[in-house]
Nucleic acid binder design. Structure first.
Length: 579
RNA sequence: GGCUCCUUAGUUCAACGGAUAGAACGUGGGUUUCCUAAACCUAAAAUACAGGUUCGAUUCCUGUAGGAGCUACCA
């Protein structure tokens, strides 16, 4: 029996049992010459049942012709692949139901054995984190979890940009205008204090552009290891690190490997020498070293300045080489904004020219900017949405909403606080992750992030509802597990839909990992929650008189809750037991 | 100028080249003696424009208009 006729049989059975109609399906052997679908096919031909929009004109031209081109012989009939899918036997979905519910590792794909490093966050230590960084961090963390779920070994890495002119600007302004202020004395979080210095410097520069020279002097001194400059640098970086640590903690972000640019910025010089020896790179008369990419449609790219010092991309070449060697990486993913598309294109090309076969295993996960209604955020102009402020604001919103509903009344204060944070963060994280990474997204500070509709709290609420039912079932002493669900329980159409969605989870994970898009998982989690809420509304689960059906339902919703947790776990969103 | 990306309801987001383009917010109308109304139901509302490829295009190609980014001996 061919697969097609097997499906045909199942579909016929399904039609008969679901709709009580007599169905005559016939098959038709066709040969397809169209190159994408070349081969012999068995077409399954159904009388038109529910396809109300099908007319004699379009009949046979939709899916039927997708397979075979025009098939005038079957006019009056339609062959619909999706239709078959819709009607697949309830028996089949019950098998899926048991499979999903009884497999604790459900959704985890077999290990692929790939070791992947994900670099993200990589902050500058001259100002606090803002909303753009939040998108970067959430994407990096969730892509890491996603790749783990898809069966890979993942190393989360970050490269802290802790030296350079921009740092010296903050240092110079502090020295000149801040009168020895410290986080303690000013009562400010360290990264915010340093950020204020940076903004102050922008003002100083406007008043007197010569301050730039002072900053360059400072940078030279830093490179020479001048003890005073180094001491100041260490002190101010320390403040920033303390500040960042708090923000990371609040967001639930962590790293397996942290590099600092002051350790890595000299890397890559040897590589440049190797490239020169290979004849891949050229040295100009003035001593600067270049890579000619005109053959690839790009420009010449400088790798060493005429004074022999390295530039930004030089250290990236070096760190890439070191990372692949040190961790035996199969792949490296850089989570960096799309403003650096060109940079990564060049990086990959040059590594390829230098003869590294892993160069084509470098991916730039290029994400879109977060824009405000008035346009791009600019640190120097103070038009940024500060990360700490936003997190705090979300917490307050969650608190206000919870108190208004009174649903948390009676819980210990500590537990309430935990939930406010969980809900506020859930809203923020979902808001950002649900958008396709590569798209520019808009954030309007005047309209606070919603707690209703397609949001994180909606999913959290759904989970809390399920937990509530399960608690009540336990109180009533109802025992349930997969093994106790009898084999002859019939699933309702809504339950079949839920099982179908649940069974699709591993495929969604694979799909999302392939696309490096946690947004796929976010949308899936929402669909699942939405579907459940509809089911919940018209099926009083605990009121069910039939003990077998009741047990089956409890197993179903418990499985649902666990899949919701797995999905949102990838996104870094926690789900509460009550809210 | 050159290169890259983007354009879907009033707004924010969905849609392996496949069926009547899905949601949410907002707007209008409903649902609570019933497991949590942060929910559910219901109505109006969109593929920038012009061509092309295809049985079939929001999706692929070409052009036009509008928007963003890159085009440093900065990082």
């Amino acid at each position: 029996m061919t697969a097609e006729s097997f499906i045909a049989q199942k579909a016929v059975l399904a039609l008969q049992s679901l709709y009580g109609v007599e169905v005559q399906a016939s098959t038709l052997q066709v040969q397809v010459t169209r190159k994408e679908f070349e081969g012999d096919y068995t077409l399954v031909v159904f009388p038109l049942l529910r396809i109300s929009h099908a007319t004699p004109e379009n009949t046979g031209s939709a899916i039927g012709s997708w397979l075979v081109g025009n098939v005038p012989e079957i006019s009056g009939f339609n062959v619909v692949k999706g239709f078959l899918n819709l009607l697949l036997s309830p028996l089949y979905w019950k098998e899926q139901f048991v499979a999903v519910a009884s497999d604790p590792g459900f959704g985890l794909l077999p290990a692929t054995g790939r070791t992947i490093m994900v670099e993200f966050s990589s902050p500058n230590t001259n100002k606090p984190l803002h909303l753009g960084h939040i998108r970067n961090n959430l994407l990096g963390a969730s892509v890491s979890e996603l790749l783990k779920a898809a069966g890979n070994k993942v190393i989360k890495a970050t490269l802290v940009n802790d030296r350079g002119v921009h740092i010296c600007k903050s240092m110079y302004a502090w020295q000149e205008r801040f009168d020895g202020a410290t986080p303690e004395s000013s009562g400010k979080k360290g990264d915010h204090l340093v950020g204020d210095c940076y903004v102050e410097f922008a003002k100083m520069e406007k008043e007197d552009p010569s301050v730039l020279d002072k900053v360059h002097e400072m940078l030279v001194k830093w490179e020479e290891g001048d003890p005073q400059v180094r001491a100041l640098w260490e002190k101010m970086n320390g403040w920033v690190f303390d500040g960042f640590e708090q923000t990371y903690k609040a967001l639930g972000i962590s790293f397996d490997k942290v590099d600092y640019e002051h350790d890595t910025y000299l890397l890559g010089k040897e590589l440049v020498q190797k490239g020169l020896d290979m004849g891949v790179l050229v040295r100009d008369p003035d001593g600067s070293v270049w890579c000619d990419l005109t053959a690839d449609g790009l420009d010449r790219k400088i790798l060493l300045r005429s004074d022999g010092t390295s530039v930004y991309i030089t250290q990236d070449l070096g760190t890439a080489e070191r990372r692949f060697a040190e961790h035996q990486l199969d792949s490296m993913i850089y989570v960096v904004g799309n403003e650096q598309n060109y940079h990564f294109q060049v990086l990959k090309l040059i590594l390829g020219k230098l003869g590294f076969d892993w160069a084509d295993q470098i991916y730039h996960l290029s994400y879109g900017m977060v824009e405000l209604p008035e346009g791009k955020m600019k640190s120097r102009e103070g038009t940024v949405v500060d990360a700490d402020d936003l997190i705090q604001k979300m917490y307050e919103e969650a608190k206000a909403t919870s108190n208004e509903s009174g649903k948390l009344d009676g819980l210990p204060e500590e537990e309430k606080e935990r939930l406010y944070h969980m809900i506020g963060l859930g809203a923020l994280k979902y808001f950002i992750i649900k958008v396709d990474p590569k798209k520019t997204m808009l954030f309007d500070p005047k309209e606070s992030i919603d707690f209703n509709g397609n949001t994180g709290p909606f999913i959290q609420y759904t989970h809390a509802r399920i937990c509530s039912i399960l608690r009540k079932a336990a109180e009533q002493g109802i025992a349930y597990d997969v093994a106790s669900v009898p084999g002859d329980v019939t699933l309702s159409p809504k339950e079949v839909r839920l099982v179908k969605l649940l069974a699709a989870y591993p495929q969604k994970v694979a799909e999302a990992a392939q696309a490096l898009s946690p947004a796929v998982i976010a949308n899936y989690a929402y669909d699942l929650a939405k579907e459940f809420n509809q089911y919940y509304h018209d099926t009083p689960i605990l009121k069910e008189a039939d003990a077998a059906v009741l047990k089956a339902r409890l197993v179903l919703i418990e499985t649902l809750a666990s899949v919701l947790r797995k999905a949102t776990g990838i996104l870094g969103i926690e789900l509460p037991d009550r809210m």
